[in-house]
Design a protein around this nucleic acid. Structure first.
Lengths: 163, 163
DNA sequence: GAAGATTGATTCGTCAATCTTC
DNA sequence: GAAGATTGACGAATCAATCTTC
């Protein structure tokens, strides 16, 4: 007779070890994202989604909408609307692209750079507490190495309609 | 004189190693989620979000809406609407909870269990290709160990308004 | 009054169609 | 015709308010 399971019924995916790893990845991600997003909303009146895009704009020279698509893995329409919000908020600007008039060059405003500077303390404090602390320093290095492997692999893999 | 950087401008978060790890986690997650979601939509006419909830319903004995909230880290309203969709699609049922009439007990229908069984092959194939292959077997074990550390830590950590 | 859940209003991201430029 | 980007319609998740039951 089998021992009583804490999970009463057996799901066809319940004994799938690979799915278990993936599910854990998703849930850890969701939790970290939601908590950091809530902190940024309350402390700096900005969402983590907008901040992530702003960071890419600031870090990428001659950034175009397409760069947000390929870096963040969001759709073109979504990227265009994020930029709309950043421009309205005064954090970024669209400038005509002299090299290709189909696209604009995105640049952070001084207010955008100031925002990135202001949030850094909170972001670091949060990630120290929820990412660095629970992992040993070696664990953090390991995690980064494994994520790089996954990232590099998906880069070159054939796939769907997103870039 | 500094070497020319591939990322033309320096973001205040650009040289933040912790943020870099977090950003990689987010982007690996987004990519895997989007690709698997696209495959499930086209092959089985179901979203990964709905499937994830259905899996929790099937795996949790006497599952309530609150269990979806605490397991998937979504809001109560969101969980309630996911259940709506699963019920309409014929994959799950709400039954009165004899122990507490405020809540319902969620159970998968035979169609729901059949769906979970049908998708398993595709899910496994995808995760083998995009999760197991790029990592060595040892790497997969390491990743799972690190994710468990993060998961267990966030479980006990004080935080925002989501459970 | 607190806990579990549902509903309506809002927001955000995707999708498809469209426009401009290469 | 293809590539880059924008817009409107649609789908899904959050939030706040509400209802029922503990």
């Amino acid at each position: 007779m089998a021992l009583r399971q804490p999970r009463g019924a057996a799901s066809p995916l319940a004994n799938d070890d690979l799915y278990a790893v993936f599910a854990r990845l998703v849930r850890v991600h969701t939790r970290l994202w939601n908590q950091l997003d809530a902190r940024l909303r309350s402390q700096h009146a900005v969402t983590l989604a907008d901040l992530s895009s702003l960071e890419v704009v600031a870090a990428t020279g001659g950034c175009r909408v397409q760069d947000l698509v390929s870096t963040l893995h969001i759709t073109v329409g979504g990227a265009s609307k994020v930029v709309d919000r950043l421009v309205v908020a005064g954090y970024a600007e669209r400038a005509p692209n002299p090299q290709d008039r189909r696209s604009s060059v995105l640049t952070p405003t001084s207010a955008g750079l100031a925002l990135l500077g202001q949030v850094r303390g909170d972001v670091d404090a949060f990630l120290s507490q929820h990412l660095a602390t629970p992992l040993s320093p070696a664990g953090l290095t390991d995690l980064d190495r494994l994520l790089r492997l996954l990232h590099d692999h998906t880069i070159t893999a054939p796939a769907g309609h997103r870039e």
